[in-house]
């Protein structure tokens, strides 16, 4: 016993280092999968508040740009509204229950330069935000909510190792998957493109609508470079994201009002 205590006293620096390092690495490895990232995630009102102070100071600097973006979005929405009005003879939109609701929010903290990026928004559980809701910017899709507190939520950005998204090539209607392999925040990668599908530079990539998180046909990006597979496998392509993640400020959270119903169906399918 005495020798043990002497040993501990003599080597306490190294032993303490090793044990604390093990704790850190355990925490780190636990967060290295999407679902565990969700579990261990701490969204907390103190950090939220701190980021919000900083954001209110900084937001004055970009008011002009934000105004322009909102005006652009307004124009697009007005155009769409016009289309609905002219088509109302065939399609009574008032009697169609809306499946997707949009909750506006502001990004108060955001990173784009890390391997795994997150952003924090100023809406939380009390505003109806729940885990696994989609987040879009005025230009395209942006991320998925993974953690919520009363007034703030954390979203996993598309710029994340575990951000994987089912997408569709708008021209051919073919499905593929979106990934982000690090590097530039403007560029993503589309993988699993079947070999018979022709992909050209400038093709539009949209959401497939298969995940119930994002509505079908939301813009994701534009093809920049097609990469044919070297050993006869599936092709891939680099795309330019529609969303400018670096200037992400105004976002909308997508609430799927049928989500519970869809989840139940999916669960019964898995269990049978």
């Amino acid at each position: 016993m005495k020798t043990l205590i002497r040993f501990l006293q003599k080597h306490h620096f190294v032993l303490l280092f090793i044990s604390l390092e093990i704790v850190s690495i355990l925490l780190l490895s636990r967060s290295h999968s999407y679902h565990r990232a969700v579990l261990t995630h701490a969204t907390n009102n103190i950090t939220g508040k701190l980021y919000e102070w900083n954001n209110t100071m900084g937001s004055y600097l970009s008011l002009h740009k934000q105004n322009q973006m909102l005006q652009q979005q307004n124009a697009v929405l007005l155009e769409e509204l016009n289309q609905y009005k002219t088509n109302s003879d065939y399609f009574d939109s008032m009697n169609q229950p809306a499946i997707f609701e949009f909750i506006p929010a502001r990004v108060i903290s955001n990173t784009v330069h890390l391997r795994n990026n997150y952003f924090i928004i100023n809406k939380g559980v009390s505003d109806g935000i729940r885990q696994d809701m989609g987040v879009i910017s005025p230009e395209g899709i942006a991320g998925i909510i993974i953690g919520t507190s009363a007034h703030y939520s954390t979203a996993l950005s598309l710029l994340h190792r575990y951000a994987s998204l089912s997408v569709r090539l708008q021209n051919s209607g073919q499905l593929a998957n979106l990934k982000w392999e690090g590097g530039s925040y403007t560029q993503g990668e589309i993988v699993d493109i079947p070999t018979h599908v022709q992909v050209n530079k400038g093709d539009t990539i949209v959401t497939s609508g298969h995940s119930f998180v994002f509505p079908e046909g939301m813009p994701v990006g534009i093809v920049e470079e097609f990469i044919p597979s070297t050993h006869g496998g599936l092709n891939s392509a680099y795309i330019r994201f529609s969303t400018d993640f670096n200037s992400l400020r105004q976002v909308y959270i997508i609430k799927n009002t049928h989500k519970e119903e869809l989840d139940t169906i999916e669960n019964t399918m898995i269990h049978e």
Partner: peptide, 27 residues
Amino acid sequence: GWLLLISAFGVGMIMDIFMSTAGLHSA
């Protein structure tokens, strides 16, 4: 030594909370 390590662990944890990275900065 112990205080040095504990402070590093604690300060790293604070950074981890801000950056949403569990254990990375503390390690």
